[in-house]
Structure formats: C-alpha cells, structure tokens
Amino acid sequence: MSTCKTLLRACPKSSRSSLLPLTHHRHESSTRRHKKLLNLSDAPSYTPSTRTPTLIFNPPSSAPSVYHTPLKFLPQTDRRRQLYSAALTSTTQTALRTRTPSIAHSGTPLSTPSFLPPKPSTPLPAPVREPYEKKYHLTEKDMEEIRKLRTEDPDTWTRVRLAEKFGCSQFFVGMIVKNTEKAERVREEHEKMRERWGPRRRMAREDRGQRRERWGREV
C-alpha cells in the first residue's frame, strides 16, 4: 500500500499554473520517503498472534511433493486416512465459519488471511477437455461399412472423416481397419518433407521431441 502511495507521489501532477517557473518541489523529506514509507510491516504469516514462541510454517507456493500420497491412494488400513479426514473436517468448519475473504475490500489489514480453504459446495475447477461418456453405439454393420469405405477409397474416407460420420474416435477407426498402403505412402511423403528441412528447423523439432519426452520424467 505504501509503495503505491510513493509511486503516486513520484508522478508529477499535470495541472500546474503555466506562468510559474519550472522549479523542483520537494514535499517530503528524502528520509521519510525512502525509509519510513517503505518500511512495511511483516507479512501476516510471519507475525504470530501470541507472544509465546510459536512455530511459523509458511512454505513458498510450489508443486506438491509426490511423496505425499493422496487420500484416495492410501490403503484402507493406513492411519493417515484418519488424519486426512480430521484435517478435512477442520478446514470445512473454518471455511463455513468464515465469510467471503475480506482481502478484496479496500482498507483490509494485512494480517487477514487471504487464502481460505474451499467450501464443500465450491464447484471443482473447469475441466481442460470436456469429459465424455463412451457410447459403444456402433454395430457390426457399421463397422463393416467403415471397413468398406476405408479400403475402397482411403483418400476420400480418411480416419477423420469416418470418425465424424460415425461419431467415434479416429483411434477407433484405426483399430477397426488398417490401410497399410496408405500409411506407407503418407509416411514416405512426410519423410520427403523432412528431408527438405534445414538445420534450424530440424534441430527445433528434435528439441521439441526431447522436451516432450521429459514431460513424463520430471515433475
């Protein structure tokens, strides 16, 4: 807050009487500006509410450790299940007791906790991809039809178009019928295309592939 104030003060006001000469005005002493106003109080998580020595636990926000097994993955006999459920109960009670986080309003003291545990009624975040139900709607006749179309005219009836027509996934079409001729032809075309790449593009593609492999390796 104070930082914003000093910043505002640093900006000169445009509405000035043009007749006066341009002189430098100092409204506050340098000490006050540089020391006192910038002397922010400690972050709320570092200022304990009691005078007695307490433990301050305030880790920086980071990815959760993979060594903390999620509740769902714990076996039924594990004692950590009880701890998890106790923690869940207490956070739920806290969330229900507290009203909306007051951090949004102006004039909120810094000691207010900004992050509240989610209420049980809070909806989950939006899915990255729309979840879908598997339909299993294709009959044996449909599959025959797919096979016929794909073998007769693989250039018109690509996997994408067949998937659109029959409302299934491209992967499923590939499972039903494989056209090795077409696959070989496409592979050769791609190979020819790749041969035309220069060193920069080739290296960029290889790097991308290596980065992709690292997705499943490091967390």
């Binding site: 959760p64 993979v66 060594y67 097994t69 999620p70 993955f73 967390v219």
Partner: peptide, 12 residues
C-alpha cells in the same frame, strides 16, 4: 505423471 508417482511412491 505426478499422480502416478504419488501412487507408486506410497510408503507404509
């Protein structure tokens, strides 16, 4: 991958 590691690295 993190979820799978959470499963595999379970420690009694």
């Amino acid at each position: 991958a993190a979820a799978l590691k959470g499963w595999y690295l379970y420690k009694p």
